[in-house]
Design a protein around this nucleic acid. Structure first.
Lengths: 225, 225
DNA sequence: TGTTTCAGTGAACGTATGTCCACTATAAAC
DNA sequence: GTTTATAGTGGACATACGTTCACTGAAACA
């Protein structure tokens, strides 16, 4: 759906997507960025108008329709992009060694720092998870459920969690996800220059995860089925 | 701020608030209810218009201003009402005996059932906590922080949690609040007639709280200060 | 009783919205 | 070099919005 140039025989050497497509993708990104920017601070996605998104993107309202059928479709694209950001983080995290010592503290650190760097995407997820239009909200919930399952699979590798069945792993993963989303919301609202506040949020999240893992170590699954 | 009738000497026997005030309070409530109703399902508060709230309330737009200076003030009233609902629940819960056996399961049961009954208020809190206008969002956060502190105070009474200092109690209470808010969001989205789904959410929340308490029983506060 | 107060009305305003259309300019295809 | 496809323009439209204002009718008051 993206690189369908080069109709038949020849393979272009340097510009696989043509000047035209490149320009198109650029204003498409401008529209997405405009929405994310407007979303920062007070606003919620459902309160954004097509016109103001177009204006911030530096484009006339009618041009919007060359890229999306409406705000809802743009919202779905933001869901895709935001979760790509999140999955990229997870992929990097999984490929890194990360010694067991201080594993929790380091993971929290990594996650929250990433959330700060990709503030707009994480803010979009946090906000629209609960408040957005049906399609956007459901898409986010689906992705979040998926992420929870992946996390559950990661948790299964821990020796201490041997007694857990699938349901209980997901239960625990949900607890972790909730705690991390809560910390993310705090971080997103925090004054980024206030190192003390940021540090306190990090410590809080670390303690919460430790408590969860402490509880998990004591947990006995009731039944395998 | 409510029953300031009966100007000087006489005490009216049957109508303490006059016919007029009663009517006024009725349309005020109609406006609040209209907003809550519109908020159910897709919409977010910031996407509601003054005009449609007035229309659903069965009143002309201009009449809105007899009760609120604008949508923001109405939003603040909704915050007040919603948290009054929540505090009422907590007051009832605290005054009830609730034997230690199955305490967690019973508490979860009570809470989620209450959330279902007062669905619109809980939905408002859950949504606008993260997405609303600055004033509304901050008011909700403040109330939620207060509620977390109250819960922390309640937790301090448990014998198993003797080793906890104030910060750690709030940390644990935050975990509990996050878990319960998460379960609330699931309940609010669930098909209320699907007993299986509702039951699964209850079980999930119960397990999560149990795991938190299990972890707490192992917790050792690092320092009192 | 006559007078005052005020919640709710109906119409008007200027502005912002979503959507459509004929158009222009230019890269791509022939 | 000519033709075709299309991203972006500019203007128009019907509709919805927040806010204002003079008004009405009935409850409250004296």
């Amino acid at each position: 759906m993206r690189l369908k140039r080069t109709s038949s025989t020849e393979i272009p050497e340097t510009a696989p997507t043509g000047v035209r497509d490149e320009r198109k993708q650029r204003t498409r990104k401008a529209l997405l960025d405009a929405a994310l920017t407007l979303l920062d601070g007070e606003r919620s996605f459902s309160s954004l108008s097509l016109r103001e998104v177009a204006k911030v993107a530096g484009v006339v309202p009618a041009a919007f329709y060359r890229h999306f059928t409406g705000m809802d479709e743009l919202g779905m694209s933001l869901v895709d992009d935001s979760f790509r950001t999140l999955h990229d983080m997870m992929r990097v995290a999984r490929s890194a060694p990360l010694p067991p010592s201080n594993l929790i503290a380091r993971s929290v650190e990594t996650f929250l720092r990433y959330a700060q760097t990709h503030r707009l995407h994480f803010q979009f997820i946090a906000k629209e998870r609960v408040s957005g239009s049906s399609s956007v909200r459901l898409a986010i919930r689906k992705e979040l459920r998926l992420w929870t399952s992946e996390l559950a699979a990661d948790l299964a590798a821990f020796p201490k969690l041997k007694g857990f069945n699938g349901d209980d792993l997901r239960m625990m993963a949900g607890l972790v996800v909730n705690a991390m989303m809560g910390a993310t919301e705090l971080i997103l609202d925090a004054d980024l220059n206030d190192a003390g506040e940021v540090g306190r949020i990090h410590t809080l999240a670390q303690k919460q995860l430790m408590l969860i893992f402490l509880g998990a170590a004591q947990w006995k699954s009731k039944a395998a089925k």
